[in-house]
Amino acid sequence: MARTILLDQLTGRARSRQELADKLASKDVPAEIATRLLDRFTEVGLIDDAAFARTWVEQRQAGKGLAKRALQQELRRKGVDDDTVREALEEVDPGAEEEAARALVRRKLRSLARFDDTTATRRLVGMLSRKGYGAGVAYRVVREELADSGRGDGGGDDEACIESLEVD
């Protein structure tokens, strides 16, 4: 029964060892049986937290535009150890991360046409912040994309804007 639970869980997508352990525990599988099965699945390569973390980072960064900080939090919630998380995040290209932020801003900018630049900036920087981008990077990308779209002056007081956003 426990083996079937693990195989069913691994059918849809890869999962971390901790996710699988939690699933077995929720199905009242005794801990010693769960540990033996998890060890065996790891030994034969069906459970691989490093591969899981790399795949998770690639998919979530490309699909959702998440920054390293958000990806790190997600992987930790999934029970992946810090060293494995760090290794997976080292593969994220900073240029690709910034381009993902720019794509998010461009997509959202269309729906903010009716708002003034200050409101649009606040909302866009907030969106990027929720996706794990730091305030400095988020504000710079938003300012540049607003200027490229013909809005905003491309200048402004970065520090004042960042401070006002941190208060919200």
Rank of each mutant, 00 (worst) to 15 (best):
25 A>F: 11
26 S>E: 15
26 S>V: 04
27 K>M: 10
27 K>C: 15
32 E>N: 10
33 I>E: 14
34 A>G: 15
35 T>R: 15
36 R>V: 12
42 T>K: 06
46 L>H: 12
47 I>H: 04
50 A>I: 04
51 A>V: 06
51 A>M: 14
54 R>W: 10
57 V>N: 04
62 A>T: 12
62 A>D: 05
63 G>P: 04
65 G>N: 02
65 G>K: 02
67 A>R: 00
67 A>W: 01
68 K>R: 14
69 R>C: 10
70 A>V: 09
70 A>F: 09
71 L>D: 00
75 L>D: 00
76 R>D: 10
83 D>M: 08
88 A>T: 07
89 L>M: 08
89 L>Q: 03
90 E>S: 11
92 V>T: 09
95 G>H: 09
95 G>C: 09
101 A>E: 06
104 L>F: 01
104 L>H: 04
104 L>W: 01
105 V>A: 04
108 K>D: 05
109 L>W: 03
114 R>S: 04
114 R>T: 08
115 F>H: 02
116 D>Y: 05
119 T>N: 08
127 M>R: 04
128 L>Y: 02
132 G>T: 09
133 Y>E: 15
134 G>D: 12
136 G>Q: 08
141 V>Y: 02
144 E>F: 07
147 A>Q: 09
150 G>W: 08
150 G>P: 06
157 D>E: 14
159 E>Y: 14
160 A>K: 15
160 A>N: 14
161 C>H: 03
161 C>V: 11
162 I>S: 11
163 E>C: 08
163 E>F: 10
163 E>W: 08
164 S>E: 11
166 E>G: 15
